[in-house]
Design a protein around this nucleic acid. Structure first.
Length: 606
RNA sequence: GGGACCGUAGUUCAACUGGUUAGAGCACCGCCCUGUCACGGCGGAAGUUGCGGGUUCGAAUCCCGUCGGUCCCGCCA
């Protein structure tokens, strides 16, 4: 059908006869001569149609429309010197057409133009409905190619390291804890349901028991939770698991993998080893377990000062078991007005979104005079003031913002304000260099966190993470006592404040596994019922093992410089988990439901 | 479940404080044009202002509901 690809033609092809196929990117009809920009996946080339080469062909050319599919035969020739287009890779040449074949004409209106020159931002709703057209645009086509190249890099790297790729079931069993499952009814086993995997966690552990030693998978995962710009109901994990390796070795391997990806895709040499921070330090210094360490503005705990201060918002926060923390916005006196911090202001609104009642502030003036509301100024003695300024490293011109209240709210608030202001004040450089790709391992997560709604402990990662051996001790008798305050051998990889992935060493001792499940409220009976198969497997020679899973779509989004995960996925879903192209999900026939023994009981609107 | 923003021609936008026949670019159709490359020129067609209701002499504009999209909170080990 074709002899060459459009974008591959160069000067050395001059005088060769070629047959090309592609889409019409644009036409320029000059009456006596017509130029067609023909585009295929390799690029674009100019086709020149001259009436001297055939009247019939010329009249076809006169009726062409953008995006029609065209086959052309012709000869490559040099463009006249003055007509060379340096913007095109093929700009020194053109193809003089001798035959045009419309393989498929466009009929009706196109919802939007594909040509890269139309940089208009089309409404995403329209892009998603006609995704196949959107994919023809340079941006998406480039993104999909980047994705492919990244995955190929991953496969090559892991292949070299001796890993093998294994698929695990999509129709599987619901896992405990975690997100809401997508369910699939079984026709054969009436009344029973499969769950789509939230991750291949248990299967990959069983592969280790199966003696695979080094496994990976580009695995589709499903979670029926509400969506965000970086969250889709089905998403892809790069899932890795290995046996007989300690945490140090696992982190090293993954660092090399990430460094290889960034080298291949972004051409950046990442400095290794990646810095590490403990979970405790991350929470203390940044108020989050995924800190963005590209800029300062770290959190300072001032509970000791706040406790004795006569400003009730502060002292009450401490006395009721909460915290008072602050960040120092360098030069904030000038860049941030009071209006923005007070109700109605943008900074206030940011704080409000995560539950803060407001933000107290102190402006540091000349000779360390402070400018703030009376309630603080009058109740802060000289020593307290000096201690505060010293601790926050404050100088004249700085603005100190405070959060007071429940510790988790304070942390969330200041973390969010910190990120918001960093963006606002231009503290983040977008340049593609090793300093701006700020990787960070967060290690030593706690095993559990308390869920106050359900009044019980929950696994912070998942209930298969191995506890820190020192914290646990070697006496199984006291495991259940030690576990709640143990750290886990778990780690997250964070990039610029986004969690890219995480993992852990796993439990390979069945007693310990049962003890951990019991800690999160799953009795031994229940444990046997739900994962007897795993617990049994642990007693049949399960090797020490561990691994990690990366959110591949999120990594892609960052590599592509996109703001939404949807740009990294060929056919993404909307925030209501709907596919605008296929109109899924949709109603089904009663026959299908009958076969599945399902009756619907729809909530009627009140 | 909650908060915020958005929906006008195929598409991107405009239409003042509620006031004549809802305008413009691109795309589309017709005519002209032999070196353009986001070609150019002249003309034309194109609208249930997402949908339903209300207020009003009068609604794209104000109010209520609803559908859809985006961002966020909750949620997402």
């Amino acid at each position: 059908m074709r002899s060459n690809s459009c974008g591959d033609l160069r000067k050395e092809h001059i005088s060769t006869a070629v047959t090309l196929c592609g889409w019409i990117d644009r036409c320029r009809d000059h009456g006596g001569v017509i130029f067609i920009d023909l585009r295929d996946s390799s690029g674009t080339i100019q086709i020149t149609v001259d009436p001297d080469q055939g009247k019939e062909m010329f009249s076809i050319a006169e009726s062409l429309r953008n995006e029609s599919v065209l086959q052309i035969k012709g000869v490559v020739r040099a463009r006249p010197l003055e007509a060379v287009n340096s913007k095109l890779k093929t700009g020194e040449i053109e193809v003089l057409a001798s035959e045009l074949n419309v393989l498929n004409p466009v009929r009706g209106n196109l919802p939007f133009t594909v040509s890269i020159h139309d940089e208009e931002s089309i409404r995403e709703e329209v892009r998603l409905k006609y995704r196949y057209l959107d994919l023809r645009r340079e941006r998406m086509s480039k993104n999909l190619r980047t994705r492919h190249k990244t995955i190929r890099t991953v496969r090559n790297f892991l292949e070299e390291e001796g890993f093998i790729e294994i698929e695990t079931p999509i129709l599987t069993k619901s896992t405990p804890e975690g997100a809401r499952d997508y369910l699939v009814p079984s026709r054969v086993c009436e009344g029973q349901w499969f769950a789509l995997p939230q991750s291949p966690q248990i299967f990959k552990q069983l592969l280790m028991v199966g003696g695979i030693e080094k496994y990976y998978q580009i695995a589709r995962c499903f979670r029926d939770e509400d969506l965000r710009a970086d969250r889709q109901p089905e998403f892809t994990q790069l899932d890795i698991e290995m046996s007989f390796m300690n945490q140090e070795q696992i982190l090293d391997l993954n660092e090399r993998l990430i460094a290889t990806i960034w080298k291949n895709i972004k051409g950046v040499e990442l400095p290794r080893p990646f810095p590490r921070i403990t979970w405790e330090q991350a929470m203390h210094r940044f108020g989050t377990d995924r800190p963005d360490t590209r800029y300062g503005m770290e959190l300072h705990d001032i509970n000791d000062i706040a406790r004795s201060i006569k400003f009730k918002v502060f002292s009450n926060a401490v006395l009721s078991g909460g915290s008072v923390k602050c960040i120092n916005v360098k030069g904030g006196n000038q860049s941030i007005s009071n209006v923005r911090i007070k109700p109605g202001g943008d900074i206030f609104s940011e704080a409000q979104k995560v539950g803060a009642g407001g933000l107290a502030f102190i402006r540091v003036r000349e000779s360390n005079e402070i400018d703030t509301i009376g309630a603080i100024k009058e109740n802060l003695n000289e020593d307290q003031k000096n201690e505060l300024l010293q601790r926050t490293d404050a100088e004249p011109g700085d603005l100190i913002l405070f959060g007071a209240g429940e510790t988790s709210t304070v942390n969330k608030t200041l973390d969010r304000i910190r990120q918001f202001l960093a963006k606002e004040l231009g503290l983040i450089s977008k340049e593609n260099n090793d300093k701006n790709w700020n990787f960070l391992w967060v290690v030593d997560f706690p095993m559990f966190e308390f869920n106050s709604d359900e009044n019980r402990l929950e696994a912070l990662h998942h209930p298969f993470c191995a506890p820190n051996e020192e914290d646990l001790g070697h006496n199984p008798e006291i495991w259940s006592k030690q576990l709640p305050k143990s750290r886990a051998q778990a780690y997250d990889l964070v990039l610029n404040g986004l969690e890219l992935g995480g993992g852990s060493l796993r439990i390979h001792n069945s007693d310990l596994q049962k003890a951990v499940l019991k800690t999160v409220g799953i009795s031994e009976n229940e444990a046997i019922k739900q994962f007897g198969f795993l617990i049994e497997a642990l007693d049949m020679g399960a090797p020490p093992h561990g691994g990690l899973a990366f959110g591949l779509d999120r990594i892609m989004m960052l590599l592509m410089g996109e703001e939404s995960i949807r740009e990294a996925i060929a056919f993404p879903k909307t925030q209501q988990a709907r596919c605008l192209m296929t109109q899924a999900p949709s109603e089904t026939s009663t026959l299908q439901l009958e076969e599945l023994s399902i009756k619907m009981d729809l909530k009627t609107p009140e």
